[in-house]
Simulated assay, not measured.
Amino acid sequence: MPASSIRWPLRPGGRLARPRRTRLALSLGAAVSAMGLLAACGGGEAQPANVVATGQAPSYYPADYGQVIEASRREGGTLNIYSNTDQENWAPIFRDFRRKYPWVTKISANNLDSDEVFQRVLSEQATSGSPADVLVSNAAQGWAEFAAKAGALMPYKSPEVEKLPDFATLLPNVHTMSIDPLGVAYNSSLLPKEPTSIQALADLVAGDQGKYRNKITTRDVDGAFGFSVSHAFTAARPGAWTSLQRILPLARPETSSGTQLEKIISGEYHAGFFISAAPAYPMIENSGGLLKLAFPKDGTVVLPRGIGMNAKAPHPATAKLFTDFVLSEEGQRAVAEGGLTSYREGVEAREDRHTYQDLVRQVGAGNLVFVKYARVPGDQVKAFVSRWNGLLGH
């Protein structure tokens, strides 16, 4: 099966995976939430400390960048984002972007499944054209396939790239908005000790298989997210199959980190691995110490969240302003405030803000496994999925 034919992840009835929340409510409420937020950030408020200068680009931007700003002023103050990112993550980003560019008064951001971001745009482009300006998703395979299509992405290299690490550029015209580390989430009342590694989790559950049978959860590798993170881990740590052979027979797959976390809190699962930190952080904060997250010291998977622009974006200048903003130091502070993990130097880690630098201090740079934005050949996908699913308990 050629890589270009892979379509992730279909379920019975043709439904895409990752039902993290009620999609209808999010889709209908996204624009309302953004508009209510922007209206609340009216012109009478004091300038926040993390916004450098209203309506102005940093001094290191190209001399003609002012033309982009002026073009944005003429675009009607609208920005449409297709993403798989929750509204609480977006809130501080929209707030600070609006304060910097106050003429952008209408921001909408839906919450789609990770691959649905691309499928929606392609479907719309094939008919009357897509209203999407900016695309945000952490579907590595989806991005690789979409970026390979001629005329899909607006050619753009952000002036912020020179200030950022190499992994800020994932593909031509695709930048890193945030990094999403994945860990072992567990119910602290049900697990006797913190699983500091995948091997430690394997040692723990294998010691009492009856107790942990069907009490461990992992991501469904038939889906884009589950495949990408699980495949990246085993490709970087092939010896980890020994641990996985002990864990997977006791595990049940799920299609959503949100669902996994809810079931861990309720006690249906004792623990889960390859759980995204982005939805975990707010649930940990509200769990009263019941839910905890450990980053494995034998390999913490890091999934970049990509941002790119529709080649036929209706508001191209505003899309460029937004892309550059989220990569800037001020934008990355807002990224961290919203619960995602920022990666730019200069963003201070706090209890409510998470950074790549803090993650490195916790587990070490050599223990991080980055998911690459590259297409995996179809025969390799099939072989991996078959091996993984063959180990799962039934």
Rank of each mutant, 00 (worst) to 15 (best):
G346C: 05
A202V: 05
V134Y: 13
L261T: 00
V174Q: 07
A235V: 15
A40Q: 06
Q125A: 12
Q260N: 11
L321Y: 11
A202K: 09
D166G: 11
E268L: 02
Q67I: 02
E351A: 15
G339T: 02
L16G: 08
V174Y: 01
M1N: 04
D96F: 06
A336M: 06
H315D: 01
L170Q: 09
S287L: 11
L170K: 10
S59T: 14
G207H: 10
D208C: 11
T127H: 15
S243P: 07
E194Y: 01
L28R: 06
K100Y: 00
W90M: 01
L368I: 13
Q47S: 11
K320P: 01
V302A: 12
A25I: 15
V221A: 05
R353S: 04
S256L: 12
G13C: 11
K382A: 12
G226I: 02
E194P: 05
G223M: 03
N80P: 04
H394C: 05
W143E: 01
H175M: 12
R99E: 05
T234D: 01
G267T: 10
L244D: 10
E194M: 10
S137V: 07
T176S: 11
F370V: 07
W143A: 02
S158F: 01
G42L: 03
L38M: 14
E145L: 08
R246N: 14
P282D: 03
G14L: 12
G267M: 06
G13V: 04
V161W: 10
L26M: 13
N367A: 13
L182A: 09
T217K: 12
T78W: 00
K297W: 00
P58W: 10
T259F: 00
E351I: 03
G364T: 09
Y82W: 06
V376K: 08
K263L: 15
S123I: 03
R219T: 02
L10P: 08
A206E: 09
F146D: 00
R213I: 03
L191E: 02
A63P: 03
P102K: 13
L359F: 11
F233Y: 15
Q245N: 15
I93V: 14
A232P: 09
H231E: 01
Q199G: 04
N50L: 06
G207W: 11
Q332C: 03
G393P: 10
V302E: 13
G364L: 10
A374H: 07
L135T: 06
S137T: 14
G308V: 04
K263E: 09
